[in-house]
Computed example of a mutant assay.
Amino acid sequence: MKAHVDQDTCIGCGLCPSIAPDVFEMKDDGKAHVISDTIPKDSEDSAKEAEGSCPVNAISIL
């Protein structure tokens, strides 16, 4: 699985790294970014939870 954050849509609320810290991080631009190209197997559920919790639907889990 892979994660993607739409940088144009992201509002930098910080919810995704709080739910899935192995997948997402906040950077100096104030927006969330994906840490690695492939989601670790043990983080797939939390990544999907972060996708569903994003208030602006900026996250895609593929």
Rank of each mutant, 00 (worst) to 15 (best):
I59R: 03
D45P: 06
I35F: 05
I61Q: 05
H33A: 10
P55G: 09
V23F: 12
H33C: 02
A20E: 01
A58T: 07
S43K: 02
C13D: 13
K31R: 11
Q7G: 09
I11M: 14
C13K: 10
C13F: 07
L15N: 08
L15C: 12
N57T: 14
D45K: 14
N57D: 15
A20F: 03
S43Y: 00
V56S: 07
T9D: 02
M26W: 05
I19V: 14
T38F: 05
G30I: 03
C16H: 07
A32N: 13
H4A: 12
P40C: 01
A50K: 00
D6V: 12
A32G: 13
A47L: 07
D6H: 12
A32C: 12
K41Q: 11
A47D: 02
D29I: 15
M26G: 08
G30F: 01
K48Y: 13
H4K: 12
E44V: 15
H33W: 10
K2L: 08
I59H: 01
E51F: 02
A32W: 05
H4T: 07
I59Y: 00
K27P: 04
K48V: 15
G52A: 10
S53L: 07
P21T: 06
D29Q: 10
D45C: 06
G12Q: 06
Q7E: 13
G52W: 08
D37R: 06
I35S: 02
A50E: 02
E44R: 11
T9F: 00
M26N: 15
D42L: 07
A50F: 02
P17Y: 07
I11G: 11
L62T: 12
A58W: 01
S60V: 11
D45I: 09
K2R: 13
S18K: 08
V56E: 11
G52D: 15
P55T: 08
D42C: 03
D28R: 13
I11W: 08
A47H: 05
G30A: 01
D45Q: 12
D29P: 07
P40W: 05
I11V: 15
P55S: 11
S43M: 04
P21V: 03
T38M: 03
A47Y: 01
V56D: 09
V23D: 04
P21Q: 10
S46M: 12
S53K: 06
A3R: 04
S60L: 10
S18N: 08
D45E: 14
T9V: 14
D37N: 11
V23N: 06
